[in-house]
Design a protein around this nucleic acid. Structure first.
Length: 462
RNA sequence: GUCGCCUUCGUCUAUCGGUUAGGACCCCAGGUUUUCAUCCUGGUAAGAGGAGUUCGAUUCUCCUAGGCGAUGCCA
């Protein structure tokens, strides 16, 4: 068994493409077959190297590795020419020199008459020797195939016209190259978006004209935006790498994508191995799905909570760099991650929260400071500084004991001490349990920040 | 216009003719908690419409509507 992902390099790897790639990849793994990557760059006007790189980067980040390729169609023009020539010689194709204008007029007329807009075979028997090359599509009968996800699909040959397989400059077009490649590369399971369903009967006719055996076809439903329209930029990020940048873990994205159009009972969270084990094309839904960022965020948080610490360190690296956070001068990053993982929805958030452990700040969040740093807090903070400066065992347990001692001495509840302390430590008030945070922030920084809080209160008094 | 595909809570989905139509996200309420978060409990919410087949349809068939796709010398 061999499947493939065959994007055209006219932009970044987007969410829909990634889902198609994932399903094709999963099915190959599941069937212990191969997965190949092919770049369909026959449209030289729109294809760019930057897009090729972006697609490769996206696939790599997602971990969707290929067994063969990447193949480039532009490397195979000689082969396509040979096939076109063969079709010409066998009279299964012919040259056509109808102008674009004539074709446009023809389409308009047919549409106006309520008919299917298709080529009328004007050059069919002219025996021309130049122009575009058209494939002689059968005019009778039906093309019927059994799609692995959609079931039986039937189209009348009457609906199909003689499609162009080579442009007037001699370059081949999609419907020809895809057939030649899938055949030559032994792809026997074509998994792609269902926007290709309409092309499939044409391609089947081409396979038959060439005397080649048919692959299985599996057409995946599209991914739509929240409003039911085709997913596009206005629905938020559509580029896979934009999700990396926004702080998502690749396995969270993959998990989200695999559940869009496929399910296994009530299970929501799947490891890669489980996906491979449980995935089955026959369980793929026919209906299109809408992309829902809230659920992706939930999954991302689930993965952040449970991920292997080394993996998080790896994934965080890009974000630390992006936010210019230097972790060499501060606590062990694994301890910080553990303190933060239950309160971070994304890696971007986590990196932001990490700043308080590695960077000093010169002011407190104004709103919180007004609330917490009132004159009444002064003796409490003074007491904390007093105790902590003498504390030798800088452990969360000892730090916690001091807070309790201060509560007793000042005859106040935990909150009266904990809240200003937390704000002093974090600058924003958002932090986990104060004893652990204080331990990680370190004795010197803790004392300096408490002193800063004291200075703030003094400045309010004046 | 024509052809093809699709249609269960707002969203992702379960259901292989008989269920109080289940789960998850979101949202709401309550509980745990030194803030936030985590965690726990509970709640709101669905079979597009119409025929037919059947003792019985979300499930099978047909029609309608709606959505998406194709109708390119794009892929």
């Amino acid at each position: 068994m061999k499947s493939r992902f065959a994007p055209s390099p006219t932009g970044y790897l987007h969410i829909g493409g990634a889902r198609t790639a994932l399903f094709a990849w999963l099915w190959a793994k599941k069937e212990q077959g191969q997965f190949i990557l092919r770049i369909e760059d026959t449209d030289r006007e729109r294809s760019t190297q930057a897009s090729v790189d972006a697609i490769l980067d996206g696939m790599k980040w997602l971990g969707l590795d290929h067994d063969e390729g990447p193949y480039y169609q532009t490397d195979r023009f000689d082969r396509y020419k040979t096939v076109v020539q063969q079709l010409l010689e066998e009279d299964k194709a012919y040259y056509c020199e109808c102008s674009q204008e004539r074709l446009q007029v023809l389409r308009d007329e047919l549409m106006e008459k309520g008919e299917k807009a298709k080529y009328d075979g004007h050059c069919q028997h002219k025996n021309l020797t130049a122009g575009v090359v058209r494939f002689r599509n059968p005019s009778e009968g039906n093309v019927i195939f059994s799609d692995l996800v959609k079931g039986e699909i039937s189209v009348h040959n009457k609906e199909l016209d003689d499609l162009i397989i080579a442009r007037s400059d001699g370059t081949p077009t999609y419907n020809l190259t895809v057939v030649v490649d899938d055949h030559d590369m032994d792809v026997n399971c074509v998994i792609r978006g269902d926007d290709h369903i309409n092309n499939t009967p044409r391609q089947i006719n081409l396979y038959e004209a060439l005397g080649w055996g048919l692959p299985d076809f599996a057409h995946l439903p599209m991914i739509l935006g929240g409003d039911g329209a085709r997913l596009s930029k206005r629905h938020g990020a559509v580029s896979v790498m934009a999700y990396r940048d926004a702080g998502f873990l690749p396995e969270a994205l993959l998990n989200y994508l695999v559940r869009l159009g496929w399910s296994h009972g009530d299970q929501e969270v799947f490891s890669i191995d489980e996906m491979i084990d449980l995935f089955d094309l026959k369980d793929v839904n026919k209906a299109p799905g809408s992309f829902n960022q809230d659920k992706l965020i939930w999954l991302n948080q689930e993965y952040i909570k449970s991920a292997d610490i080394d993996h998080l360190v790896d994934q965080l690296d890009w974000h630390l760099n992006d936010q210019s956070i230097d972790i060499s001068n501060g606590p062990d990053i694994t301890n910080v991650i553990d303190a933060l993982r239950e309160r971070s929805k994304t890696l971007v958030e986590m990196a932001q929260s990490m700043k308080m452990f590695y960077q000093d700040f010169d002011q407190f969040d104004e709103k919180s400071a007004k609330k917490q740093f009132k004159p009444a807090a002064e003796p409490i903070i003074k007491a904390l500084i007093d105790h902590y400066s003498k504390l030798e065992d800088w452990s969360s347990a000892a730090i916690h004991d001091v807070v309790k001692t201060v509560c007793d001495e000042q005859s106040v509840g935990f909150g009266k001490v904990g809240q200003p302390f937390r704000l002093a430590l974090s600058g924003t008030g958002n932090a986990g349990s104060i004893d652990i945070v204080a331990e990680l922030v370190g004795k010197d920084r803790t004392l300096a920040r408490l002193q800063m809080a004291l200075d703030y209160i003094a400045q309010i008094d004046n």
